[in-house]
Amino acid sequence: MSTPYRCPNCKTNKTRFNMIEQISHAVKINPESGEIVESFNDHDAGPFHLPYNGPEYRIQCAACGLIEDEKTFAKFGESHY
């Protein structure tokens, strides 16, 4: 977070944001009940379970509520600063 942010939606907020840390948990659920049948760690989920590879953080504009990847707010902040 060493670059300026700016909300691409409301275009006025440059100072108030919520950082949302994304933590994934690999699970296998029962398709009928939705109950968790099995929980895996990152390394033994098996060959049919892809590991999470999304962004580590998401950012929410504290003025309008838009939630996007951190890169979106950073790019808009760099180009409109």
Results as ranks from 00 to 15, higher is better:
residue 1 M to R: 08
residue 1 M to W: 10
residue 1 M to A: 09
residue 2 S to T: 12
residue 3 T to N: 11
residue 3 T to S: 12
residue 3 T to F: 06
residue 4 P to I: 05
residue 6 R to T: 10
residue 7 C to T: 11
residue 7 C to A: 11
residue 8 P to H: 04
residue 8 P to W: 01
residue 9 N to L: 07
residue 9 N to A: 08
residue 10 C to L: 08
residue 11 K to Y: 13
residue 11 K to D: 15
residue 11 K to T: 15
residue 12 T to M: 14
residue 12 T to D: 15
residue 12 T to S: 15
residue 12 T to F: 14
residue 12 T to V: 15
residue 13 N to F: 10
residue 14 K to H: 13
residue 14 K to M: 06
residue 14 K to D: 15
residue 15 T to G: 12
residue 16 R to L: 13
residue 16 R to W: 10
residue 16 R to H: 15
residue 16 R to F: 11
residue 17 F to C: 08
residue 18 N to V: 14
residue 18 N to T: 14
residue 20 I to E: 02
residue 20 I to P: 06
residue 21 E to M: 10
residue 22 Q to M: 13
residue 22 Q to G: 06
residue 22 Q to K: 15
residue 22 Q to E: 13
residue 22 Q to F: 09
residue 24 S to K: 06
residue 24 S to R: 07
residue 25 H to G: 06
residue 25 H to K: 14
residue 27 V to K: 12
residue 28 K to Q: 15
residue 28 K to N: 09
residue 28 K to F: 06
residue 28 K to E: 15
residue 28 K to R: 13
residue 29 I to K: 09
residue 30 N to C: 13
residue 30 N to I: 01
residue 31 P to H: 08
residue 31 P to I: 05
residue 32 E to F: 06
residue 32 E to L: 06
residue 32 E to T: 05
residue 32 E to G: 02
residue 33 S to M: 03
residue 33 S to A: 02
residue 33 S to Y: 06
residue 34 G to Q: 05
residue 35 E to F: 01
residue 36 I to E: 09
residue 37 V to I: 14
residue 37 V to M: 09
residue 39 S to G: 03
residue 40 F to A: 03
residue 42 D to S: 05
residue 43 H to E: 12
residue 43 H to A: 08
residue 43 H to N: 11
residue 43 H to Y: 02
residue 45 A to N: 08
residue 45 A to R: 13
residue 46 G to P: 08
residue 46 G to K: 04
residue 47 P to K: 07
residue 48 F to L: 08
residue 48 F to N: 11
residue 48 F to T: 08
residue 48 F to K: 03
residue 48 F to I: 02
residue 49 H to G: 00
residue 49 H to N: 05
residue 50 L to W: 11
residue 50 L to I: 05
residue 50 L to E: 13
residue 50 L to V: 03
residue 51 P to N: 10
residue 51 P to I: 08
residue 51 P to S: 07
residue 52 Y to S: 04
residue 52 Y to C: 02
residue 52 Y to H: 07
residue 52 Y to I: 00
residue 52 Y to E: 04
residue 53 N to G: 00
residue 54 G to R: 01
residue 55 P to V: 00
residue 55 P to Y: 05
residue 55 P to T: 00
residue 55 P to H: 05
residue 56 E to R: 05
residue 56 E to I: 02
residue 57 Y to S: 00
residue 58 R to F: 10
residue 60 Q to I: 03
residue 60 Q to G: 03
residue 60 Q to T: 07
residue 60 Q to C: 12
residue 61 C to I: 06
residue 61 C to V: 04
residue 61 C to S: 10
residue 61 C to G: 07
residue 62 A to L: 10
residue 63 A to P: 01
residue 64 C to G: 01
residue 65 G to Q: 04
residue 66 L to M: 09
residue 66 L to N: 10
residue 67 I to C: 03
residue 69 D to P: 05
residue 69 D to E: 14
residue 69 D to K: 08
residue 70 E to T: 10
residue 70 E to R: 12
residue 71 K to V: 11
residue 73 F to E: 01
residue 73 F to M: 07
residue 73 F to Q: 12
residue 74 A to C: 09
residue 74 A to Y: 04
residue 75 K to W: 05
residue 76 F to N: 14
residue 77 G to A: 05
residue 78 E to A: 04
residue 78 E to D: 06
residue 78 E to G: 00
residue 79 S to N: 14
residue 79 S to G: 13
residue 79 S to W: 01
residue 79 S to P: 00
residue 80 H to L: 01
residue 80 H to S: 10
residue 80 H to P: 02
residue 81 Y to K: 07
residue 81 Y to V: 04
